[in-house]
Design a protein around this nucleic acid. Structure first.
Length: 491
RNA sequence: CGGGGUGUAGCGCAGCCCGGUUAGCGCAUCUGCUUUGGGAGCAGAGGGUCGCAGGUUCGAAUCCUGCCACCCCGACCA
């Protein structure tokens, strides 16, 4: 019998952990807060990575790799940056171990480093140190670099995928000659992220700008995409920062412009991480386990062959292989579970908890009738279909599933986006149904902090489009407001 | 850092309050037979420094002291 998955209604966060465990996405490690990404989880990450990588390259970026170790002094160069990250850095102080008679294995005191090294929590500092050597002229600009890497942030409280001490991500770091060009870059990437979230992950997102208190440490402006989870909590799914000239000044990175003047370089940085896997899980999955959008699912179609005798096995498997060839030719990722010793019911259940979008069952009866059983993971619908034209049918179904997941998530977000005009309504909505709450805000950090203190809701973003056009009054302070902003309790 | 919980076979747990046969159960594993269209059945087998270190006792998984680790909930953050 399989491990039972706690229903969402009983305990949402336990459900989330159960889904991960039963889908074999990740495992705990011996070190607190660190995560072993299992093959199922990693295959998912690889697909996400691949799709994003194509989009980055289409928008003119190239990949590079900077080292994991950063001289400790680099972190101190940008004032806001150090304040934001100092409290969560892993620091390397020694270069070797030695066996001590009393204490066992210890860091060898003789190997203490001249300067401590910090395991990167993000790479702005080492990259801007590098850029300062690469950039002299306006002809050296722009630099549009992305890197796929791991980073470490010593978090107090962790949660698989959503917040782990080490996580995988991509971080883009670009250098520009003008402010406008850097801002354009920031917004280009925000669009890439939006497209990826909506078209690949089937997760609708709100585009917006962070308030000063939620801004990235060292940024002038932080743009973000925010998604809504099934339990009504928000999740920041990606950020794109306009860094102004902050890092260029901190690392003395100047260039000579066409008028023969020295100017500081304009910068951006942007990233999405394995946290997106957490979003994917929380947005689509149900009480039976994981549900994956077809465009990212490592296996899009799982085929379960059914047979009793060796003879049946031979017929069924050869028919299964024909189907496999046919679907592969149509660009579908199909997997045949031909393992002996596992019964069909077992395999059905396994594909189900692992979120495989469509399952086919093929037995002697089907082979004889020229049919195959099709079961959709999203709706649970089962039907028998002719083998004839199966590839086209499957392509169609996969598209329907992809679109269906997005539509459902969008409907959920819309049903859980509420506009309020009084602080009492605001609190009531947060407690009763959660979700995104649109309310006027006077633009001050004080009001924002007061609301956070009293309700645990934060301003997820000042939306770029769709909401917030009308002016009004902040119901908390009574001061005028330029528009509605998006509040929510968040992960 | 505060609150709660857990640590006994690969995994999940019982046993502990009230110390005493050979530490038990489910799943998994191995062997055999029967099975196979929604997580199979029967029979047999293997697998344990009871988190670590002290202490009490004739005797400790169980009582006492100290330590460690991990998980969950909060504060901080992507």
């Amino acid at each position: 019998m399989a491990e039972a998955i706690t229903p969402r209604s009983t305990d949402y966060s336990q459900w989330y952990l159960d889904v991960i465990k039963s889908a074999k996405l990740a495992d705990y490690s011996p070190v607190r807060g660190c995560m072993i990404i299992r093959p199922n989880g990693y295959a998912l990450w690889e697909n996400m990575k691949e799709a994003l990588d194509v989009m980055f390259k289409e928008t003119g970026h190239e990949n590079a790799y900077f080292p994991i170790f950063i001289p400790q002094s680099f972190l101190a160069r940008e004032a806001d940056h150090v304040e934001g990250f100092a409290k969560e850095c892993a620091v390397v102080t020694h270069s070797r171990l030695k066996l001590d008679d009393e204490k066992g294995l210890i860091a060898d005191p003789d190997s203490k480093l001249e300067e401590n090294l910090v395991v990167r929590p993000t790479s702005e500092t080492i990259i801007w140190d590098t850029y300062s050597r690469w950039i002299q002229s306006w002809r050296d600009l722009p630099i549009l670099i992305n890197q796929w890497a791991n980073v470490v942030r010593w978090e107090m409280r962790t949660r698989l995928f959503l917040r782990t001490m080490e996580f995988l991500w991509q971080e883009g770091h670009t250098a520009h000659a003008t402010e406008q060009e850097a801002i354009d870059e920031t917004l280009t990437i925000l669009d890439v992220y939006t497209k990826f979230a909506e078209e690949y992950m089937a997760v609708p997102v709100l585009k917006g700008v962070k308030t000063a208190s939620e801004r990235f440490a060292g940024a002038v402006e932080t743009y973000c995409i925010e998604a809504l989870m099934q339990d009504g909590k928000a999740l920041q799914a990606g950020t794109s920062h306009f860094l102004g000239q902050n890092f260029a000044k901190a690392f003395n990175c100047q260039f000579q412009n066409a008028n023969n003047e020295l100017e500081y370089v304009w910068a951006t940085s942007w990233g999405v991480s394995t946290r997106l896997i957490g979003a994917l899980i929380m947005v689509h999955s149900d009480d039976a386990g994981l549900i994956l959008p077809p465009r990212l699912a490592p296996t899009q179609v799982g085929l379960v062959p059914i047979y009793r005798t060796d003879e049946e096995k031979e017929t069924v498997l050869s028919a299964a292989k024909e189907i496999q060839q046919e679907l592969r030719a149509a660009g579908i990722r199909i997997h045949i579970d031909a393992r002996d010793g596992f019964r069909p019911g077992w395999k059905f259940a396994e594909y189900e908890v692992q979120g495989v979008p469509v399952r086919l069952a093929l037995g002697p009866r089907d082979v004889q009738n020229g049919t195959v059983e099709i079961a959709r993971r999203d709706s649970g619908e089962k039907s028998s279909a002719p083998r004839e034209g199966l590839a086209a049918r499957m392509t169609d179904i996969l598209e329907q599933v992809q679109q269906g997941l997005f539509d459902k998530a969008l409907a959920h977000r819309e049903a859980n986006t509420t506009s309020v005009d009084t602080y009492d309504d605001f609190k009531a909505v947060l407690d009763d149904k959660g979700g995104f709450v649109l309310m006027h805000w006077d633009g001050t950090t004080e009001t924002e902090a007061k609301i956070k203190e009293e309700t645990k809701a934060t301003i997820r973003c000042i939306p770029l489009e769709g909401y917030g056009d009308e002016t009004g009054t902040d119901p908390v302070s009574g001061e005028p407001s330029k528009g509605r902003v998006v509040f929510a309790r968040a992960y």
